[in-house]
């Protein structure tokens, strides 16, 4: 016990030092404090466990489910869950367990691609509008309003209908409809930051607007954007699943959870597992992202910090 705890205590005091000796120590110490308050929130830990599990599942999908998600076996159609097929099989005799595990990759791909497009776009538009104000703000915000005025799924449907079905187009469609709230959040944050003395101070040092935005304003907006992205993940997964369900997202035979629910709905009463299992997967992963997002908000948002 003591053999473990001595170096542990030394690390701890190094991290929590009130007088860090280097940039690295200061940064790590700050991260560690955030991690400590994150640990204090059990639900957030559950959320993180789910998200980590999803990541690992996607990463090691071929190991966890060695079979092919596309392998059909028409003699084994619609088998109930058993020791051979843990989650049963679908109407083409494909193993649902394998498809759910591989489907995690599809879901994660969609979610990550959307996040990578949406967060920087919203952040850039929002901070620019908030910082410069005036005409630029008006123009950017009216564009934002226009996108906000459409129901998300309907707009995504329209885009997919125009671009044609498929995962890439689903990602583009979701991203196009998802960025406005990020711009709003970033703009609101920027407008309060803009008036603060520390931003005035860098302005007085002669920093360019670009430098102020990128190095001083954006890092402070980033935490709300990260929180928002995490909380939005559930919505993105659901939209992707919705598009898949309507046949406009991932195309068969890709094992996308929404499409799986869709194809299983014909057998919902007699072979419940075909639609329910991917449905549970959607539910659990959405819940995981939501819990994680709430936990991150407690850690990252100083206004909520006790």
């Amino acid at each position: 016990m003591t053999a473990y705890s001595v170096p542990q205590v030394r690390w701890r005091s190094w991290l929590l030092s009130a007088a860090p000796q280097s940039r690295i120590q200061a940064r790590l110490g700050n991260l560690y404090l955030g991690w400590l308050s994150f640990l204090a929130n059990p639900l957030a830990l559950v959320g993180m466990a789910i998200v980590v599990a999803l990541l690992l599942m996607a990463l090691f999908a071929p190991l966890l489910a060695p079979g092919s998600p596309y392998a059909q076996s028409l003699t084994e159609r619609l088998l109930p869950p058993s020791s051979e097929h843990w989650f049963g099989t679908d109407e083409l005799g494909r193993d649902i367990y394998t498809r759910v595990v591989h489907g995690g990759r599809v879901t994660l791909t969609i979610v990550l691609l959307v996040a990578i497009i949406v967060a920087p776009l919203g952040l850039a538009i929002g901070t620019a509008a908030g910082y410069f104000g005036g005409l630029l703000d008006t123009v950017l915000m009216r564009i934002t309003d226009i996108f906000l005025a459409f129901p998300r799924l309907i707009l995504a449907l329209a885009f997919v209908a125009a671009l044609g079905p498929g995962i890439e187009n689903a990602v583009i469609a979701i991203a196009l409809t998802a960025w406005p709230p990020y711009a709003r959040v970033a703009r609101a944050e920027t407008m309060t930051l803009r008036e603060s003395d520390f931003i005035s101070a860098v302005r007085l040092q002669g920093a360019s607007s670009m430098r102020i935005l990128v190095r001083h304003v954006m890092p402070l907006c980033l935490s709300s954007v990260i929180i928002r992205v995490t909380l939005d993940m559930a919505g993105i997964i659901l939209t992707a699943a919705g598009l898949g369900f309507l046949g406009l997202g991932a195309q068969p035979p890709i094992p996308e959870w929404g499409a799986m629910v869709s194809s299983g709905r014909a057998f919902l009463l007699d072979q419940w597992w075909v639609a329910t299992i991917p449905g549970i997967a959607i539910f659990v992963v959405s819940l995981g992202f939501n819990l994680l997002g709430d936990g991150l908000r407690d850690v990252l948002d100083p206004k909520q910090r006790r």
Partner: peptide, 26 residues
Amino acid sequence: MVFQDPYGSLHPRHTVDRALSEPLAI
């Protein structure tokens, strides 16, 4: 310029080092 409120005039996420190296970099 030096501001009134020492709590508001330093960037909350920047170390002293960063606050002082910024004007030098600019």
